[in-house]
């Protein structure tokens, strides 16, 4: 209980934590599979990020509210049920109201269920913290994920197809097709993580 009270004034810090200091992809290295698969274009990346954020906020909130009711032996099963429920809701809503995004993300929407960011935050954060701070954690982590996907999607789309958010910047023929393929995803991810680690280590040195 005292831990919760201590966490309360740190909502902003929790939010920033998810976006920057503990960015799920670039620092915690969670959720690699959807990151590589859906960052082929900026629009896809942002769409996937927002869908995951919605699931994260919902599941973190509910799991945090239920954390004292769920016996530890069945917690993983319970978390999966909660997460799967939110994913299915998001999937149905996308299919009904944003069909173009639903079509381009396809199989990766149901796969949010097994995205280790969602289960990871449920287990590591929501099951130990109050509902409000868990909700903020979900929002922060989700935004962090969205930001990473947007950066990667923009880089891959620009280098691979010569477009930015679907607008042609230079002719498609000059694009490096490699970048929109899976290997381009690995290359981009490696470079982005390296850049973030470089910035983080410089920041630490500065603080000393």
């Amino acid at each position: 209980m005292s831990g919760e009270a201590k966490n309360k004034p740190n909502l902003f810090k929790t939010l920033l934590n998810g976006i920057i200091f503990e960015n799920p992809v670039m620092v915690l290295l969670l959720g690699m599979c959807p990151t590589l698969a859906t960052s082929t274009s900026a629009i896809n990346g942002v769409g996937m990020g927002i869908a995951t954020t919605a699931v994260l906020i919902g599941s973190n909130l509910v799991i945090s509210l239920l954390r004292k009711l769920i016996p530890s032996k069945i917690r993983i099963a319970s978390y999966i049920v909660v997460i799967a429920t939110f994913v299915t809701i998001v999937q149905l809503l996308l299919q009904a109201y944003i069909p173009s995004l639903y079509n381009s993300l396809g199989l990766f929407i149901p796969l949010i269920v097994v995205n280790c960011i969602v289960l990871g935050r449920a287990e590591a954060f929501a099951s130990k913290n109050g509902p409000i701070v868990s909700l903020v954690d979900g929002l922060g982590m989700g935004l962090g994920f969205t930001l990473t996907l947007a950066i990667m999607g923009t880089i891959r789309e620009f280098l691979g197809a010569g477009t930015l958010f679907g607008m042609q910047v230079y002719p498609n023929e000059f694009g490096a097709m490699l970048m929109t393929m899976p290997c381009g995803g690995f290359l981009t991810l490696g470079c982005v993580i390296a850049a973030v680690q470089f910035i983080r280590s410089r920041g630490k040195k500065g603080a000393k």
């Binding site: 239920l66 769920i70 016996p71 032996k73 069945i74 099963a77 319970s78 049920v81 909660v82």
Partner: peptide, 10 residues
């Protein structure tokens, strides 16, 4: 208790 909790959640 485990079964009932899971049942309620599902």
């Amino acid at each position: 208790k485990l079964a009932i909790t899971l049942l309620a959640i599902t």
